[in-house]
Design a protein around this nucleic acid. Structure first.
Lengths: 239, 239
DNA sequence: TCGGTTCTGTACGAATTCGACCAAGAGAAT
DNA sequence: ATTCTCTTGGTCGAATTCGTACAGAACCGA
């Protein structure tokens, strides 16, 4: 019994035609995804590509002296392993699970074969690559031109977009890695948000209370990749 | 009389098969490129794609409040207008000429058509997209984790890779825009390099004296995208 | 040659962020 | 209940970078 399109929650799968979905469905395999699980290892061949159904994955760049920084943010609106879409077998970046969830995986070969047979499928997935590029560029802009407060706000918004409720299971330590700042810098910035009741925090979790005001704080730092997603994929990133 | 492959200096054109080159050649049109010329305007349809032969172009992200920052760096190793390769018609980023030069332009439609007819051509150009993505990610990493001195070194190296001599025609003002720092910060960082005789500067020019030591200063900030270029395109980025 | 524009050198205090540290709290494991 | 580990709150001085300002130098066009 193969999957039906109406039962999947991944927005790329939802966005494709019945035909294209039918090409992939026989090869899709449900998997659960646990925190810190590595989906794409740096410099190792990509065997599976994952369409996320729930949870959150990060693409991180790793410098030779082991500095790390998030350069991509993927939830149920997207898929991991984008080099496969560009006929590239591996990448120096690593992709791993930040927030546990589930997904549908497919062998890279099977996906490539399906794309070869369907220009519309290929088009959709290449559009997804474009969204990822714009997202990465936005990260570069954020890191270069915006303060911690704004970057934190952006990150929380991106995370919230991809989660079901308003609870984000994140530690300060973890956020500091993603944002490329020191841990107590995250603590301080979160206290500011908590002080004006935009979030409420407890150990290992951040509860979002007022998304509208968080967007105000993020300001120009947030929104552009999300708008491009809607334009290019044809569905809003967040329900 | 169409172009011959041996006469072009663009490395993507050099890297493709005679067959693929022959598909493009009839549509390629030589153009000179002057400083500040816009090759891809933000949010406007991309009409032409440019294979650079000399000079340098930058892709910049523009935030709603008009902050700007370089997120891509393209010389004769590449081409502009990468959204076309992803079947995307326009992009929120702008691409313009930083260092005057020349190139071969082709109508976006003609390039798309040529790609449709040749998997190998499509593969090569998609590999180029991957290189650009890694470069953008590296910019994000650089902006987030490295100091001005290292970022400046990285930028000078990237520029030098794409120029013919050791003279880089760049103003401090311009570098400050690219790096996302204030102008006098660039002046100070350049003085450091000048003090140890890695560069010599004069109004509007930076003359590179000792590339090896500049690479040492850039450290982990430089090199990864360049290595991926060689791997994926099959030619070294710099001769 | 002159006047205007662009570019560079330099200075100042202010703001941000860092790095390193320690102590207290929360939860998990025994 | 006790111990251990992870997470958070908070501090310190130091380093980096900022914003702004101004003056002189180099270049350009008339």
């Amino acid at each position: 019994m193969t999957l039906s399109k109406s039962s999947v929650r991944n927005r790329l799968l939802q966005a494709m035609s019945e035909d294209d979905f039918a090409r992939l469905a026989p090869h899709l395999e449900p998997v659960t995804l646990s925190v810190k699980q590595v989906l794409v290892e740096a410099n190792e061949p990509i065997e599976y590509v994952h369409f996320l159904e729930a949870g959150l994955a990060s693409v991180v760049a790793i410098s030779p002296d082991n500095e790390r920084l998030e350069v991509g943010h993927i939830g149920r609106e997207g898929m991991t392993g984008e080099p496969i879409l560009l006929t590239v077998d591996y990448t120096p970046h690593q992709t791993f699970i930040q927030v546990a969830g589930s997904g549908l995986r497919i062998r890279a070969d099977d996906l490539s074969a399906a794309m070869e047979g369907s220009p519309s499928l290929k088009g959709l997935l290449l559009h997804w690559v474009q969204v990822l590029m714009i997202q990465t560029a936005q990260s570069a802009l954020a890191n270069g031109r915006f303060a911690i407060q704004e970057r934190l706000a952006r990150w929380l918004l991106m995370c919230h977009d991809r989660m079901d409720g308003d609870d984000l299971p994140l530690t300060h330590e973890f956020l500091s890695l993603m944002l490329g700042v020191r841990r107590s810098g995250v603590t301080e910035a979160l206290h500011v948000l908590e002080g004006v009741k935009i979030v409420r925090t407890s150990r290992g979790r951040i509860h979002l209370l007022d998304r509208a005001r968080l967007e105000e704080i993020a300001g120009a730092c947030y929104g552009l990749p999300e708008a491009e997603y809607a334009r290019l994929i044809g569905l809003p990133l967040k329900n």
